[in-house]
């Protein structure tokens, strides 16, 4: 019996190296390698995420440090253009900040906001979907009608509203300090519906399966059934949805920042940079808007493709 236990334990707890190898050899990685477009998307995403993580180390300047900023250097074109300076590879913005550094840190901020808001909306949405699918009845009806109503408005409008209300309700200095938190919550509020609806649907299907009935007969409590039986079975769809939603979250954050209600201008995100650049676009200073814009397109496109691929790859009906 003890040797049996040991072998079972060996089987169930492989080392981290073995896990990585297993992952690289897994069905899903094989699938990814076959799909060239998804592979490129994965590489672009991974590269951009790595750059964003290492931004403070890579960036040649600290754009948040006012002492390093010289207004006289404002609106310099990229290094290779006429009038460009070698130390400012992509040129500078209207306040004389190095555009490359600002862009790198902006990318980091955009990704952090997107990840945080997607995580939050997934946590909220999955919980609500699970509860609604499990209890059914009037609570389910009410929650789903609210979800329907919210879905009939664009997500951006919801985020915009939530952000506006938070700004109006909270004291000014709190808003200034907590602007990132406010925007994360706003985007999350706009996004939970997707998870709640999907997870409720999957939960309804899972609850009708006999393993849930068998668990009830075993005397397993409803909470335990929800967490140990149903949740693992709905985790897949929620993760896939999250990957798709990241692109949406990045766009929402950028749009809010572009409209000037997002993160503060002192710590610009990609959207803020595009807005600033937009003001100078017609005076010939194209770079301030174009480089952040291109980065935005790249990251959104890559995560979107990756999300689509993951959704197809994990869908047994298509696979």
């Amino acid at each position: 019996m003890s040797s049996l236990d040991a072998s079972a334990a060996r089987k169930s707890r492989p080392g981290p190296a073995a896990l990585v190898v297993a992952f690289l050899r897994s069905e899903i990685m094989q699938d990814l390698r076959r799909d060239k477009l998804a592979m490129i998307a994965a590489i672009v995403t991974l590269a951009l995420v790595l750059i964003a993580l290492l931004a403070p180390l890579i960036a040649p300047f600290d754009p948040y440090d006012l002492r390093q900023v010289d207004l006289l250097d404002s609106m310099l074109p990229p290094a290779w253009a006429e009038g460009g300076q070698a130390k400012y590879l992509l040129g500078t913005d209207d306040q004389g900040r190095d555009l490359l550094s600002t862009l790198l840190l902006g990318l980091r901020l955009s990704l952090v906001v997107a990840l945080a808001s997607v995580t939050l909306s997934m946590a909220v949405g999955v919980s609500i979907g699970l509860i609604a699918g499990f209890l059914r009845g009037p609570l389910d009806a009410i929650v789903m009608r609210i979800a329907d109503i919210q879905l009939s408005f664009p997500a951006l409008l919801i985020a915009f509203l939530a952000d506006g209300i938070a700004r109006a309700a909270l004291p000014h200095h709190v808003v200034a300090e907590m602007s990132v938190v406010v925007i994360v919550c706003s985007i999350a509020l706009a996004g939970w519906v997707q998870y709640a609806r999907t997870i409720r649907g999957v939960t309804l299907v899972e609850c009708d399966k006999d393993y849930v009935q068998a668990a009830r007969l075993s005397g397993t409590s409803t909470l335990k059934i929800a967490l140990k039986h149903v949740l693992p079975n709905v985790a897949g769809p929620s993760l896939v949805l999250a990957t798709v939603q990241i692109a949406t979250a990045i766009v929402t954050e950028s749009t809010l920042s572009y409209l000037g209600v997002g993160v503060p201008a002192t710590e610009p995100s990609l959207g803020t940079l595009v807005r600033i650049g937009n003001d100078y676009l017609f005076s010939g200073s194209w770079w301030v808007a174009v480089f952040p814009g291109l980065t935005l397109v790249a990251i959104v496109f890559a995560t979107n493709l990756l999300g689509d691929w993951l959704r197809d790859a994990t869908n047994p009906r298509l696979g």
Binding site: K209, D210, Y211, Q213, A214, A215, L217, H229, P232, N233
Partner: peptide, 11 residues
Amino acid sequence: MIFQDPYTSLN
């Protein structure tokens, strides 16, 4: 109870 479909009655 034993159920009909052993594909859905086991998690």
